[in-house]
């Protein structure tokens, strides 16, 4: 179980995340929604400890993660894999090596520097790519791939970390609707079949409704909604996006319809 206890982050005098308290059970798929600047990205980065909290604690399975440092902190990052809006792959490395970087946390010095991955690690990387339908591009350079493919490589890299939690920061915001669906399906599949907790920021309400059984709404750094998609009523949406955003919201609900009650699972 992942627990946030009054987690707060200030940048100067601006509060990005304010006293966020949450409990997330193992195996949940949670969507985080809110306007840009509401603190969604900061929240995910706080959990991965890419950003240090100003106040509050992160507790995973009873252990205080906020206190970790050095090797223990890196091990925590390995267990909470992260994927990004801009994919954040190493463009000059081939796809396979990008995926293999998911193992770096468990490898020792000389093996890391000399790129000496074991045969089992290589086979696992191919299996991860296979699962995302990308084995045939394993030896291409990462930047030769389309955006949708790159995001799937990033997911394969995350899987290689054998994570307990997968944090996805706007994973589909840079993708066209078809690729967005493929990526969201992959995340749902990982959540269902591998039992990995998925926490994802989403900028469209309908995607959150379609894929997540629990939705968290943020506004000005605060958590203003936490419940099932059915509970996300008109007033609740207004509380998240604000009065002024009302027209945009209508568009958000109806646009880029990724919705569909029964999403087919990823092929195979």
């Amino acid at each position: 179980m992942l627990e946030l206890d009054h987690l707060t982050r200030r940048f100067g005098d601006k509060v990005a995340v304010a006293h966020a308290s949450l409990q997330i059970q193992d195996g949940e798929m949670v969507g985080i929604i809110g306007r840009s600047g509401a603190g969604k990205s900061t929240l995910l980065r706080l959990i991965n400890r890419l950003i240090e909290p100003s106040e509050g604690r992160i507790i995973a399975d009873g252990r205080d993660v906020t206190a970790l440092a050095g090797a223990e902190l890196r091990a925590w990052r390995a267990r909470t894999a992260m994927i990004f809006q801009q994919f954040n792959l190493v463009s000059r490395l081939d796809v396979l090596t990008n995926v293999l970087t998911g193992r770096l946390n468990r490898m020792s010095g000389p093996r890391v520097l000399l790129k000496m991955f074991t045969q089992a690690e290589r086979a696992l990387a191919v299996r991860a790519l296979d699962r995302l339908g990308l084995a045939e591009v394993a030896l291409n350079r990462a930047d030769a791939l389309s955006g949708g493919q790159q995001q799937r490589v990033a997911i394969a890299r995350a899987l290689m970390q054998e994570p307990r939690i997968l944090l996805a920061d706007e994973p589909i915001a840079s993708l066209d609707p078809l690729n967005a669906k493929i990526v969201m399906d992959a995340l749902a599949d990982i959540n269902r079949r591998d039992g990995i907790t998925v926490l994802t920021n989403l900028h469209t309400l309908d995607t959150a409704r379609a894929y997540c059984r629990r939705i968290i709404g943020m506004s000005n750094g605060r958590i203003v909604f936490d419940g099932a998609p059915e509970d996300l009523t008109e007033p609740a949406v207004r509380a998240i996006y604000g009065e002024h955003g009302a027209e945009q919201i209508d568009e958000r609900i109806t646009s880029t319809s990724l919705a569909g009650a029964n999403m087919p699972a990823l092929a195979r």
């Binding site: 290589r122 086979a123 394993a138």
Partner: peptide, 28 residues
């Protein structure tokens, strides 16, 4: 359908051999 669990301890010698036969370039 092959095993799709992404855990290193599920990789067997047979898996390695099969992957190697299919994608030799992935092994250096």
């Amino acid at each position: 359908m092959s095993d799709t669990t992404i855990r290193l301890d599920t990789i067997t010698a047979a898996d390695i051999a099969a992957t190697r036969a299919r994608l030799p370039a992935a092994f250096g």
